[in-house]
Design a protein around this nucleic acid. Sequence first.
DNA 1: ATCATTATTATGTACGTACATATTTACACG
DNA 2: CGTGTAAATATGTACGTACATAATAATGAT
Lengths: 223, 223
Amino acid sequence: MQNAVLKRIHARHWAPGTLLPNEADIALEFGCARSTVNRALQSLADKGLLERRRRGGTRVVEHPERVATFKIPIIRLQIERSGCDYHYQLLSQNHLTQKQKIARGQGVQQMGDTLHIRALHSSDGNPYVLEDRWIDTRIVPAAKEADFSAISPNQWLVEQIPFSGGDLKLSAIKAKAADAKVLKCQAGDPLFRTERTTWNTERELITVVNLTYFHGYKMQVEL
Amino acid sequence: MQNAVLKRIHARHWAPGTLLPNEADIALEFGCARSTVNRALQSLADKGLLERRRRGGTRVVEHPERVATFKIPIIRLQIERSGCDYHYQLLSQNHLTQKQKIARGQGVQQMGDTLHIRALHSSDGNPYVLEDRWIDTRIVPAAKEADFSAISPNQWLVEQIPFSGGDLKLSAIKAKAADAKVLKCQAGDPLFRTERTTWNTERELITVVNLTYFHGYKMQVEL
DNA sequence: ATCATTATTATGTACGTACATATTTACACG
DNA sequence: CGTGTAAATATGTACGTACATAATAATGAT
């Protein structure tokens, strides 16, 4: 059923921008129940191929922006999955009780009472990614007791905190001397970086993290 | 219904790794139909929170890898949406009739009879992204007649070719002299790059494209 | 014991019906 | 002529039932 609709879209029987017949009519034409049509169309809408509005009907989207879903794995798993040895090292840990302003790209995030952690994740002994993280300990008080020399904040947070919204920026930066030393590359090398903020369901800021990957790293996404 | 299940997961009533009761039992407990439970669980499974296997039952996923869906817009729309003036310029266009080997990261892609295009997309007159594209003209013969001085291959392909699978790699590279000149930055600057291959439903390679963004670009993703 | 066959079980998909809800269109009223 | 209210319409969600399918467990023959 879903495939039948997909075929029509591909065959341009229903071209981009076209308003499809209503569910009842489609059901009649295909000789199936409306609920089946509903499921099929809804699924395609989820995938970004159709646009649906109550009373307004269903139409094929004009510019089918390719929708990619990609996974942000726990770094440990990412490394172990590729068959390499994982190693984690805490570099520094500070508790900042004053209000902090953390510059992130254009915006500035406000956090008070933060835990600042720098840690290095290695793969087969080679530096893999440098984790630079701020955790708001008012929102996540348990973080004060966590032993981040044994478990990475990355893993700890994912396992402790229920999922939530967030924001992710990807960019290329020039390696600073300090980072170059830790990541064993030349100062000035281009490095892949992700900057991420995460908030909970009440939209309170939980954590801000910058990940700076080793020189030559490519992030892979399935489409 | 979906929310009720979500609450239980958040409340760790059903902790990560837990095997949920079967749909029939859940339906009984919540006082609703199994089909309703099925829809709710399936939806959560799509979002990556649950793992389901026939006969095996449903369980809360152990390491909830955050699943981000991000859109790959037509560059033109991306620029115009931010209120800037879009400009497109074809830099070069060659038809290569011999077999080509196009190195992409670790792998090498085989294409025969390819059209190679270089083009620059600008925003308010500033270089935005450099498009370096190969199109297999055996698979997409219409590309030979398309006028890529008027429409970008990016836009043309999205509108002509039905969606398909693909592969996307994101990385940071060091600006080469030639690219630096086009993108108006210094040679050696770190640049954000995406490398993408796209194939059709028969898994034939359609196009390979490298996009190199201006110095300082950050790709943004909603989580 | 080993392997092929047959039950069992939980999810996957479809049906048909009913009612809810958002949105537009039509109509009546001032 | 505008305005508020009611009808019409298409999707959204839920119900209960039926059968398909994949994966596992139990069974029986060799």
